[in-house]
Nucleic acid binder design. Sequence first.
DNA 1: TTTTGAGTTGTTCGA
DNA 2: GTCGAACAACTCAAA
Length: 473
Amino acid sequence: MPAAIWWVRRDLRLGDNQALAAALAHGGPVIPLFILDPALWASAYVGEKRLAFLLGGLRQLDAALRERGSRLLVRSGAPHEALAGLLAESGADAIFAEADYSPYARRRDGRVAARLPLHLVDGLTVRPPGTVLKADGRPYTVFTPFSRAWKALPPPEGRDLLPAPRHIPTPADLPGDPLPDAPLLAEGMPFPPGEAEARRRLEAFTGGSGPPIYRYHQQRDRLDLAGTSGLSPYLRLGMVSARQAVVAALASMAAAPSDEASKGARAWLDELIWREFFVHVLHHFPHVRREAFRPTLRAIAWENDEAAFAAWCEGRTGYPVVDAAMRQLARTGWMHNRARMIVAAFLTKDLLIDWRWGERWFMQHLLDGDPAANNGGWQWAAGTGTDAAPYFRVFNPVAQGTRHDPHGDYVRHWLPALARVPDAFVHRPWEMPGEVQRAAGCVSGRDYPPPIVDHRRARERALAAYRRSRQGT
DNA sequence: TTTTGAGTTGTTCGA
DNA sequence: GTCGAACAACTCAAA
């Protein structure tokens, strides 16, 4: 049998990999290939942290392949050219890859499929776009009915999960390019790349007795606790499959010792379904990548103040919960989901800066930066997306901080200047009397910036700008 | 076609 | 400090 190419894109795993399984089922040798695509390297939506995570993941994948008689071949260039070259050199007659639905991925794969034998296989989601539709055949644009329809379909089961192949026959003589050196992932990086780490995290979150998933609904919004799965970067690059995650969530639900515990598992499953929802939304409405989903909110007169944007990026807005979160992002490539909502609301509503600026910044810095989920999240926060956001849903950064970081542990961790600020002022340090500021070693304007906007006034400004957009259209 | 119920995550004010 | 009401209006999904 001629060889088949397993084209790795965002499925850096050997377990439960349908594209790899299809390549093996082709019957001949399998060539695992990753293409260093210059278009991605140059994109304004890619940053060095995620690239480093990707490169680290590729090294892990290569090591795992070598234990199975194979290896990862790396080639540089435009995908259709790299693939055409490799097909000719190797005599392979088929390419298998996990389908990806972002606008760029669809263009890229369309170019390849037009001239080469490309076979796309499911795996990015449990339910691919087109399989969850309303009775009239159109896609859902509201989450709750989407999730009901999603759950009504037959659930994936443990026996559906494909085991990692024991042996992968691969030709030894094909020359590849070296993987570029990753900008060093800091020692003690909170997200070590690789499938083994992803599986370990999924097991720690959902398995054993009394796992965190059973407290997820209670703790997930707490900035100061580790109540989330920490799996998003791994899902982003397919170091764990969506199906593996859903199967684990369903198993936890079935085994829940109490109603309360099963609420936690259900809440986490809903988050996985949100991920699928946004993949579907971007697939069916690719224009959301460029503009608001809601036509009436395409005319907002953004302020787009460059200095304010820089303060937001660098975490010096004077609102501790915003600044702590932005520093967590810059430092670790990850941000708590609640914090993402808070900083996104602050950028769009308090600073009246175009959500696309924030979307781009997140893509440049998040390890888990995903075109669909990131766009969906930003449009949700800006109120321009599929969610019918009431116009009055404007976050108060002080209230959010107090509620979700009640002791200030989170902000103190990322903002050492606040270390000795009393709890009562830790989310609004500018209100400290001068004497308390000096005692705490945190003088406004010297040790920590004063707030760059007054929230009350900013809120009114945002409401007015949104109202004008609605009324003008 | 019409109707009806509902929509992730909030804030503020006044009693 | 706590509690309930008010904050508008629209669109979607499904019967």
